[in-house]
Simulated scan of single mutants.
Amino acid sequence: MSHTSLNVVAQKAGVSKTTASLVLNGKADKVNIAPGTQERVRKVARELNYQPNRFNPGRLNGKTGIIAVVATDFSSYPNYLWLHHLIVSIQAHGYVVVPILSGANPEQSIDHIAADGYVIIDEAAADLFPQKPEPGFPVVCAGFKTKTTAFKGIHPNYRERVNEMISALYRHNKKAIGLVAQHGDNPSTNEMIKTYKENYCDRFEIPENIAHIPQNDWSPQTILKACLELVEKEVNGIVFESGAMALRALSQKEARQLSEKNILFASHIAKTEFQTSNDDIILAFPDNIEEMANEVVEVLFGKLLPSTHCK
Protein backbone atom coordinates (compact mmCIF):
# COMPACT_ATOMS: atom_id res chain seq x y z
CA MET A 1 0.00 0.00 0.00
CA SER A 2 1.38 3.41 -0.97
CA HIS A 3 2.23 5.88 1.75
CA THR A 4 0.54 9.27 1.68
CA SER A 5 3.14 12.00 2.13
CA LEU A 6 2.74 15.19 4.11
CA ASN A 7 3.26 17.09 0.87
CA VAL A 8 0.17 15.43 -0.68
CA VAL A 9 -1.91 16.34 2.39
CA ALA A 10 -0.72 19.94 2.22
CA GLN A 11 -1.45 20.27 -1.49
CA LYS A 12 -4.99 18.88 -1.20
CA ALA A 13 -5.70 21.08 1.83
CA GLY A 14 -4.36 24.12 0.00
CA VAL A 15 -1.69 24.98 2.59
CA SER A 16 2.09 24.87 2.78
CA LYS A 17 3.86 21.74 3.96
CA THR A 18 5.06 23.61 7.03
CA THR A 19 1.50 24.63 7.96
CA ALA A 20 0.28 21.04 7.53
CA SER A 21 3.15 19.84 9.73
CA LEU A 22 2.34 22.35 12.45
CA VAL A 23 -1.33 21.34 12.48
CA LEU A 24 -0.70 17.59 12.50
CA ASN A 25 2.03 17.90 15.14
CA GLY A 26 -0.21 19.85 17.50
CA LYS A 27 1.63 23.17 17.23
CA ALA A 28 -0.90 25.16 15.19
CA ASP A 29 -2.27 27.19 18.11
CA LYS A 30 1.21 28.36 19.07
CA VAL A 31 1.62 30.11 15.71
CA ASN A 32 -2.02 31.26 15.38
CA ILE A 33 -3.15 29.09 12.48
CA ALA A 34 -6.88 29.69 11.91
CA PRO A 35 -9.22 27.01 13.35
CA GLY A 36 -10.85 26.54 9.95
CA THR A 37 -7.47 25.83 8.35
CA GLN A 38 -6.61 23.39 11.11
CA GLU A 39 -9.85 21.47 10.64
CA ARG A 40 -9.40 21.37 6.85
CA VAL A 41 -5.91 19.88 7.20
CA ARG A 42 -7.07 17.27 9.72
CA LYS A 43 -10.02 16.32 7.54
CA VAL A 44 -7.81 15.81 4.49
CA ALA A 45 -5.34 13.78 6.57
CA ARG A 46 -8.17 11.49 7.74
CA GLU A 47 -9.54 11.10 4.22
CA LEU A 48 -6.11 10.17 2.87
CA ASN A 49 -5.33 7.96 5.88
CA TYR A 50 -2.14 9.95 6.43
CA GLN A 51 0.33 8.36 8.83
CA PRO A 52 3.41 10.26 10.06
CA ASN A 53 6.77 8.94 8.99
CA ARG A 54 7.85 6.18 11.36
CA PHE A 55 11.35 7.65 11.46
CA ASN A 56 10.74 10.35 14.03
CA PRO A 57 13.48 10.04 16.66
CA GLY A 58 13.68 11.95 19.90
CA ARG A 59 10.15 13.39 19.66
CA LEU A 60 10.02 16.07 22.35
CA ASN A 61 6.92 18.08 23.27
CA GLY A 62 5.33 17.43 19.87
CA LYS A 63 8.53 18.27 17.99
CA THR A 64 10.28 16.20 15.35
CA GLY A 65 13.57 15.67 17.17
CA ILE A 66 15.43 16.78 14.03
CA ILE A 67 17.81 19.70 13.48
CA ALA A 68 18.76 20.48 9.86
CA VAL A 69 22.30 21.64 9.08
CA VAL A 70 22.32 23.58 5.81
CA ALA A 71 25.29 24.21 3.51
CA THR A 72 26.08 24.54 -0.17
CA ASP A 73 28.91 22.02 0.25
CA PHE A 74 29.87 19.55 2.98
CA SER A 75 33.07 18.33 1.36
CA SER A 76 35.24 21.30 2.36
CA TYR A 77 37.28 20.76 5.51
CA PRO A 78 35.78 23.65 7.55
CA ASN A 79 32.20 22.58 6.75
CA TYR A 80 33.03 18.95 7.52
CA LEU A 81 34.46 20.05 10.87
CA TRP A 82 31.40 22.18 11.65
CA LEU A 83 29.07 19.30 10.81
CA HIS A 84 31.03 16.88 12.99
CA HIS A 85 30.98 19.10 16.09
CA LEU A 86 27.35 20.12 15.57
CA ILE A 87 26.30 16.46 15.40
CA VAL A 88 28.09 15.69 18.67
CA SER A 89 26.58 18.69 20.47
CA ILE A 90 23.05 18.31 19.07
CA GLN A 91 22.94 14.60 19.84
CA ALA A 92 23.67 15.47 23.47
CA HIS A 93 20.23 17.14 23.47
CA GLY A 94 18.53 13.98 22.24
CA TYR A 95 18.11 15.25 18.67
CA VAL A 96 19.47 13.96 15.37
CA VAL A 97 21.07 15.99 12.59
CA VAL A 98 19.97 15.90 8.95
CA PRO A 99 22.37 17.64 6.52
CA ILE A 100 20.68 19.58 3.71
CA LEU A 101 22.45 20.79 0.57
CA SER A 102 21.09 24.21 -0.28
CA GLY A 103 20.87 24.38 -4.06
CA ALA A 104 19.26 26.75 -6.52
CA ASN A 105 15.87 26.29 -4.83
CA PRO A 106 16.54 26.21 -1.09
CA GLU A 107 12.87 26.49 -0.11
CA GLN A 108 12.19 23.25 -1.94
CA SER A 109 15.31 21.68 -0.39
CA ILE A 110 14.34 22.47 3.21
CA ASP A 111 10.70 21.59 2.53
CA HIS A 112 11.72 17.94 2.17
CA ILE A 113 12.70 17.77 5.85
CA ALA A 114 10.41 18.67 8.75
CA ALA A 115 12.89 20.04 11.30
CA ASP A 116 12.54 21.96 14.54
CA GLY A 117 15.46 24.26 13.79
CA TYR A 118 18.16 25.05 11.25
CA VAL A 119 21.89 25.71 11.46
CA ILE A 120 23.44 27.35 8.38
CA ILE A 121 27.18 26.81 8.12
CA ASP A 122 28.22 28.86 5.09
CA GLU A 123 27.43 32.34 3.82
CA ALA A 124 26.34 31.19 0.36
CA ALA A 125 23.66 28.98 1.92
CA ALA A 126 22.48 31.86 4.13
CA ASP A 127 22.09 34.08 1.06
CA LEU A 128 19.85 31.42 -0.52
CA PHE A 129 17.89 30.61 2.62
CA PRO A 130 14.40 32.16 2.99
CA GLN A 131 14.90 35.40 4.90
CA LYS A 132 11.58 35.02 6.73
CA PRO A 133 11.34 31.43 7.96
CA GLU A 134 8.06 30.06 9.26
CA PRO A 135 7.22 31.09 12.86
CA GLY A 136 8.47 28.67 15.47
CA PHE A 137 11.49 27.49 13.45
CA PRO A 138 14.69 29.00 14.83
CA VAL A 139 17.64 29.62 12.51
CA VAL A 140 21.26 30.11 13.69
CA CYS A 141 24.18 30.89 11.39
CA ALA A 142 27.46 29.24 12.36
CA GLY A 143 30.91 30.70 11.76
CA PHE A 144 30.08 33.95 10.01
CA LYS A 145 28.39 37.30 10.58
CA THR A 146 24.88 37.46 9.15
CA LYS A 147 23.53 40.03 6.70
CA THR A 148 20.03 39.91 8.15
CA THR A 149 18.72 40.42 11.66
CA ALA A 150 16.29 37.56 11.00
CA PHE A 151 19.04 35.06 11.88
CA LYS A 152 21.24 34.85 14.95
CA GLY A 153 24.91 34.39 14.11
CA ILE A 154 27.80 32.90 16.08
CA HIS A 155 31.11 33.91 14.53
CA PRO A 156 34.76 34.70 15.29
CA ASN A 157 35.96 38.12 16.40
CA TYR A 158 37.08 39.47 13.03
CA ARG A 159 38.98 42.43 14.44
CA GLU A 160 41.05 40.18 16.68
CA ARG A 161 41.57 37.83 13.76
CA VAL A 162 43.03 40.53 11.49
CA ASN A 163 45.17 42.04 14.24
CA GLU A 164 46.56 38.61 15.12
CA MET A 165 47.58 37.86 11.56
CA ILE A 166 49.12 41.28 10.91
CA SER A 167 51.08 41.13 14.17
CA ALA A 168 52.41 37.67 13.28
CA LEU A 169 53.52 38.83 9.83
CA TYR A 170 55.25 41.82 11.43
CA ARG A 171 57.16 39.50 13.74
CA HIS A 172 58.38 37.69 10.62
CA ASN A 173 59.65 41.02 9.27
CA LYS A 174 56.81 41.38 6.76
CA LYS A 175 56.18 45.13 6.79
CA ALA A 176 54.32 45.49 3.49
CA ILE A 177 51.11 43.59 4.10
CA GLY A 178 48.24 43.15 1.66
CA LEU A 179 44.75 41.72 2.02
CA VAL A 180 42.83 39.38 -0.32
CA ALA A 181 39.09 39.81 0.20
CA GLN A 182 35.87 39.33 -1.71
CA HIS A 183 33.75 42.05 -3.30
CA GLY A 184 30.27 42.83 -2.03
CA ASP A 185 28.39 44.00 1.03
CA ASN A 186 29.41 41.17 3.32
CA PRO A 187 29.47 41.95 7.09
CA SER A 188 32.51 39.81 7.92
CA THR A 189 34.46 41.08 4.88
CA ASN A 190 33.63 44.69 5.69
CA GLU A 191 34.77 44.28 9.30
CA MET A 192 38.07 42.71 8.24
CA ILE A 193 38.74 45.44 5.65
CA LYS A 194 37.88 48.16 8.17
CA THR A 195 40.26 46.67 10.73
CA TYR A 196 43.03 46.30 8.14
CA LYS A 197 42.66 49.97 7.16
CA GLU A 198 42.37 51.38 10.68
CA ASN A 199 44.81 49.21 12.62
CA TYR A 200 47.44 48.80 9.94
CA CYS A 201 47.24 51.33 7.10
CA ASP A 202 46.12 54.38 9.12
CA ARG A 203 48.14 53.49 12.20
CA PHE A 204 51.43 53.12 10.34
CA GLU A 205 50.60 55.49 7.45
CA ILE A 206 50.97 52.68 4.91
CA PRO A 207 49.07 52.65 1.58
CA GLU A 208 46.17 50.23 1.30
CA ASN A 209 46.89 47.09 -0.69
CA ILE A 210 43.62 45.21 -1.08
CA ALA A 211 43.02 42.74 -3.90
CA HIS A 212 39.32 41.94 -4.36
CA ILE A 213 37.90 38.79 -5.87
CA PRO A 214 34.30 38.47 -7.13
CA GLN A 215 31.77 36.89 -4.78
CA ASN A 216 30.80 34.41 -7.49
CA ASP A 217 34.34 33.47 -8.55
CA TRP A 218 36.49 31.81 -5.92
CA SER A 219 38.47 29.77 -8.41
CA PRO A 220 42.12 29.04 -7.54
CA GLN A 221 43.21 30.97 -10.64
CA THR A 222 41.26 34.08 -9.60
CA ILE A 223 42.67 34.04 -6.08
CA LEU A 224 46.20 33.44 -7.41
CA LYS A 225 45.78 36.44 -9.71
CA ALA A 226 44.82 38.59 -6.72
CA CYS A 227 47.96 37.43 -4.87
CA LEU A 228 50.19 38.23 -7.85
CA GLU A 229 48.66 41.70 -8.10
CA LEU A 230 49.74 42.35 -4.51
CA VAL A 231 53.22 40.95 -5.13
CA GLU A 232 53.61 43.34 -8.07
CA LYS A 233 52.99 46.16 -5.58
CA GLU A 234 55.95 44.84 -3.55
CA VAL A 235 53.80 43.32 -0.81
CA ASN A 236 55.74 40.68 1.16
CA GLY A 237 52.95 39.52 3.50
CA ILE A 238 49.43 38.55 2.41
CA VAL A 239 46.41 38.09 4.68
CA PHE A 240 43.52 36.00 3.34
CA GLU A 241 39.97 36.84 4.34
CA SER A 242 39.19 33.15 4.79
CA GLY A 243 40.84 29.77 4.97
CA ALA A 244 38.98 28.68 1.82
CA MET A 245 40.81 31.39 -0.13
CA ALA A 246 44.16 30.30 1.27
CA LEU A 247 43.50 26.66 0.39
CA ARG A 248 42.57 27.47 -3.17
CA ALA A 249 45.53 29.79 -3.62
CA LEU A 250 47.99 27.20 -2.33
CA SER A 251 46.54 24.56 -4.64
CA GLN A 252 48.43 26.48 -7.35
CA LYS A 253 52.14 25.75 -7.76
CA GLU A 254 52.82 29.38 -8.66
CA ALA A 255 51.39 30.50 -5.32
CA ARG A 256 53.52 28.02 -3.38
CA GLN A 257 56.61 29.20 -5.23
CA LEU A 258 56.07 32.73 -3.91
CA SER A 259 57.85 31.63 -0.73
CA GLU A 260 61.04 31.66 -2.82
CA LYS A 261 60.45 35.40 -3.22
CA ASN A 262 60.17 35.79 0.56
CA ILE A 263 56.36 36.12 0.43
CA LEU A 264 54.50 34.83 3.48
CA PHE A 265 50.75 34.14 3.73
CA ALA A 266 48.53 34.26 6.83
CA SER A 267 45.08 32.80 7.30
CA HIS A 268 42.69 31.53 9.95
CA ILE A 269 42.27 27.86 9.14
CA ALA A 270 42.81 24.44 10.68
CA LYS A 271 46.53 23.61 10.58
CA THR A 272 45.87 20.00 9.53
CA GLU A 273 44.78 21.24 6.11
CA PHE A 274 48.38 22.25 5.43
CA GLN A 275 50.02 19.03 6.51
CA THR A 276 51.51 18.61 3.02
CA SER A 277 52.72 22.23 2.85
CA ASN A 278 55.90 23.74 4.19
CA ASP A 279 55.58 25.87 7.31
CA ASP A 280 57.43 28.72 5.61
CA ILE A 281 54.56 29.25 3.13
CA ILE A 282 51.75 30.21 5.51
CA LEU A 283 51.05 31.16 9.10
CA ALA A 284 47.91 29.20 10.04
CA PHE A 285 45.69 30.27 12.94
CA PRO A 286 43.07 27.61 13.80
CA ASP A 287 39.59 28.73 14.86
CA ASN A 288 38.04 26.84 17.76
CA ILE A 289 35.15 25.39 15.76
CA GLU A 290 34.22 22.94 18.54
CA GLU A 291 33.72 25.78 21.01
CA MET A 292 31.70 27.86 18.52
CA ALA A 293 29.58 24.82 17.58
CA ASN A 294 28.68 24.30 21.24
CA GLU A 295 27.70 27.96 21.49
CA VAL A 296 25.55 27.65 18.34
CA VAL A 297 23.69 24.71 19.87
CA GLU A 298 23.20 26.52 23.18
CA VAL A 299 21.63 29.45 21.32
CA LEU A 300 19.56 27.15 19.10
CA PHE A 301 18.08 25.16 21.95
CA GLY A 302 17.62 28.27 24.05
CA LYS A 303 15.25 29.48 21.32
CA LEU A 304 13.82 26.05 20.56
CA LEU A 305 13.08 24.86 24.08
CA PRO A 306 13.18 27.99 26.25
CA SER A 307 11.01 26.45 28.95
CA THR A 308 13.03 23.25 29.37
CA HIS A 309 16.52 24.14 28.22
CA CYS A 310 19.10 24.56 30.96
CA LYS A 311 22.19 26.61 30.23
Rank of each mutant, 00 (worst) to 15 (best):
A104G: 08
T272I: 07
I166D: 03
L24T: 05
V9L: 04
P106E: 08
H112A: 09
Q38A: 02
T72L: 03
S102E: 02
R248H: 12
T149G: 05
P156N: 08
P214I: 05
E273V: 06
L264Q: 13
S277R: 15
S75K: 14
E291Y: 10
A249R: 13
I177A: 10
V31D: 01
S242P: 00
L305H: 11
A284V: 05
I90V: 14
S16D: 03
I154D: 02
T189G: 06
G94D: 05
V44P: 04
S307N: 14
N190W: 00
I263C: 08
W218Q: 11
P207Y: 07
G58A: 11
H309V: 01
M245S: 10
I66E: 10
K27F: 00
L48N: 11
T222Q: 14
E198T: 13
D127R: 15
R161P: 00
R161N: 05
V69T: 06
H172A: 04
L250Y: 06
M1Q: 09
V297L: 06
G136S: 04
K271E: 12
V139Q: 06
I213C: 02
D287E: 07
P214C: 12
P52K: 15
L81H: 15
V231R: 14
G143D: 04
E191P: 00
N163Y: 01
V15S: 09
G178R: 15
G184N: 07
L6G: 10
K132I: 07
N262S: 12
T308N: 09
T195W: 02
V8H: 14
I213A: 10
T37P: 01
L169Q: 13
